[in-house]
């Protein structure tokens, strides 16, 4: 996972609250067997409407999503984060997130920053007045800058640290790899092993 410090890019104003994971990625896309390539699945139902905000040409290549409250509620599918990442988003800002979604985001390198309702409104107005304007999200200072305006966002210290270090769950565990090696060396020899395969017929 890449280390996260600042992101500068186009922001999409998504003036909707209670966006659940089924809207972020409809269930039909969950049948795939890959971890990537979900960009077409993001907001698939809404994107059929040419006027849906993400479809506007000013917002192409966006990296920041500014959403209403309770973004990412609903079923725990990790695909919701994958779809946002694959589409190109590095940051989602919202006044409140679904808990599981927020947890999944931190693990997949997506910054879920909490902003006040008032700041969400301010940012929406700014971006809508000048579509395609770039803003800068600074994880070190926990700020969003656009033109002369700076607003703060919240993120818990642990998730912030992980994003700054670029550690996914596995990376985090592998920092203790020496401990795992030590533990493995103490395991009893008679513990089950799947290889080499034995079958009852070949036993005796």
């Amino acid at each position: 996972m890449q280390k996260f410090t600042t992101v500068t890019g186009v922001a999409v104003p998504l003036r909707r609250s209670n966006v659940d994971t089924d809207q972020i990625i409809p269930a039909v896309y969950l049948k795939r067997v890959t971890r990537t390539g979900f960009e077409d699945a993001l907001f698939a139902a809404w994107r059929q409407d040419p006027d849906f905000v993400i479809n506007k040409k000013e917002y192409q290549g966006a990296r920041v999503l500014i959403a209403g409250a309770d973004f990412g509620i609903g079923s725990s599918r990790e695909h919701a984060v994958w779809a946002l990442r694959d589409y190109g988003f590095d940051v989602v800002l919202s006044p409140r997130f679904g808990d599981i979604f927020r947890g999944n985001s931190g693990k997949q390198g997506l910054l879920a920053g909490q902003i006040s309702e008032a700041d969400a409104e301010t940012l929406w107005n700014l971006v809508e007045a000048d579509p395609g304007i770039e803003l800068t999200v600074d994880l070190v200072g926990k700020t969003v800058r656009v033109g002369d305006l700076t607003v703060n966002f919240e993120i818990d210290d642990y998730t912030r640290w992980r994003l700054l270090e670029g550690l996914d769950d596995i990376g985090l565990t592998l920092r203790d790899e020496a401990r795992i090696n030590e533990f493995e060396a103490t395991r009893e020899s008679w513990l089950p092993q799947t290889l080499p395969a034995r079958s009852p017929e070949s036993m005796y």
Binding site: V33, T34, R35, T36, D168, D176, R179, I180, E184, R187
Partner: peptide, 26 residues
């Protein structure tokens, strides 16, 4: 952190895990 002695796989929940492993070159 808990050590796992036996890991069972089937076709529904493993593909993306393998894919993730591959992407991260693990």
């Amino acid at each position: 952190l808990i050590y796992i002695d036996l890991h069972l796989l089937h076709e529904v929940t493993s593909p993306q895990a393998f894919d993730g492993l591959r992407l991260a070159e693990r």
